[in-house]
Computed example of a mutant assay.
Amino acid sequence: MKSKMTDLKRLALDVYQGKNIMFNNVTGEDALRNMLTEAVGGEFNYKNFRENKYRVFSIVEEALDITLGTVITTQFDNLAEVRNVALGDQISFKVEDNSLFRVARIASGTNDIRRQKLLNKRFTIETDKYAVKIYEELDMFIAGRIDWASMVNRVAQSFANFMGVKIYEAIAKAYTSLNATYGVSGTYDEDALFDIVQHVEAKSGKTAVIYGTKKALRKVSKEMNLSENMRDQLNKVGYITTVSGTQLYLLPQAHKVGTDEFFVDDNMLLILPQNEKIVKVVVEGEATMIETSDAGDRNDQQMEYQIQKMFGIGVLQSAVYGIYKMD
Score class of each variant (00 low, 15 high):
residue 3 S to L: 14
residue 9 K to S: 14
residue 10 R to S: 13
residue 11 L to Y: 04
residue 12 A to T: 01
residue 17 Q to N: 15
residue 18 G to E: 10
residue 21 I to E: 07
residue 27 T to E: 13
residue 27 T to M: 12
residue 28 G to K: 04
residue 29 E to R: 15
residue 30 D to R: 02
residue 31 A to T: 05
residue 35 M to R: 14
residue 40 V to N: 02
residue 43 E to S: 14
residue 45 N to I: 09
residue 48 N to V: 07
residue 50 R to L: 10
residue 57 F to A: 07
residue 59 I to E: 01
residue 61 E to D: 12
residue 62 E to D: 10
residue 65 D to W: 06
residue 70 T to I: 05
residue 72 I to L: 05
residue 82 V to Q: 06
residue 82 V to L: 06
residue 84 N to G: 01
residue 85 V to Q: 04
residue 89 D to A: 11
residue 90 Q to D: 12
residue 93 F to I: 13
residue 94 K to P: 01
residue 94 K to W: 06
residue 105 R to G: 05
residue 106 I to G: 03
residue 109 G to E: 12
residue 112 D to E: 15
residue 114 R to E: 13
residue 119 L to I: 01
residue 120 N to T: 14
residue 121 K to P: 04
residue 123 F to Q: 03
residue 129 K to H: 07
residue 132 V to W: 03
residue 138 L to M: 09
residue 140 M to D: 15
residue 140 M to S: 15
residue 144 G to M: 08
residue 148 W to C: 06
residue 149 A to P: 02
residue 153 N to R: 14
residue 154 R to C: 06
residue 154 R to N: 11
residue 155 V to Y: 00
residue 155 V to D: 07
residue 156 A to Q: 05
residue 157 Q to N: 12
residue 158 S to T: 15
residue 161 N to M: 07
residue 162 F to T: 07
residue 163 M to C: 02
residue 168 Y to S: 01
residue 169 E to I: 04
residue 170 A to L: 03
residue 172 A to V: 07
residue 173 K to A: 10
residue 174 A to Y: 02
residue 174 A to M: 03
residue 179 N to T: 06
residue 185 S to V: 00
residue 188 Y to A: 04
residue 188 Y to M: 15
residue 199 H to M: 08
residue 207 T to P: 05
residue 207 T to F: 08
residue 210 I to Y: 01
residue 212 G to I: 02
residue 212 G to C: 06
residue 216 A to G: 00
residue 220 V to E: 04
residue 221 S to W: 04
residue 222 K to M: 14
residue 229 N to Y: 13
residue 229 N to G: 11
residue 231 R to M: 09
residue 234 L to F: 10
residue 234 L to A: 01
residue 239 Y to M: 03
residue 241 T to A: 13
residue 246 T to K: 02
residue 248 L to A: 11
residue 250 L to A: 04
residue 254 A to I: 05
residue 260 D to S: 15
residue 260 D to G: 09
residue 261 E to M: 09
residue 261 E to P: 03
residue 263 F to T: 06
residue 264 V to A: 03
residue 265 D to V: 06
residue 268 M to V: 06
residue 268 M to I: 03
residue 268 M to E: 08
residue 271 I to K: 03
residue 277 K to H: 07
residue 280 K to Q: 09
residue 284 E to Y: 00
residue 285 G to W: 04
residue 293 S to Y: 05
residue 295 A to E: 11
residue 295 A to I: 14
residue 302 Q to N: 12
residue 302 Q to T: 11
residue 307 I to W: 03
residue 308 Q to D: 15
residue 309 K to Y: 09
residue 314 G to T: 07
residue 325 K to Y: 07
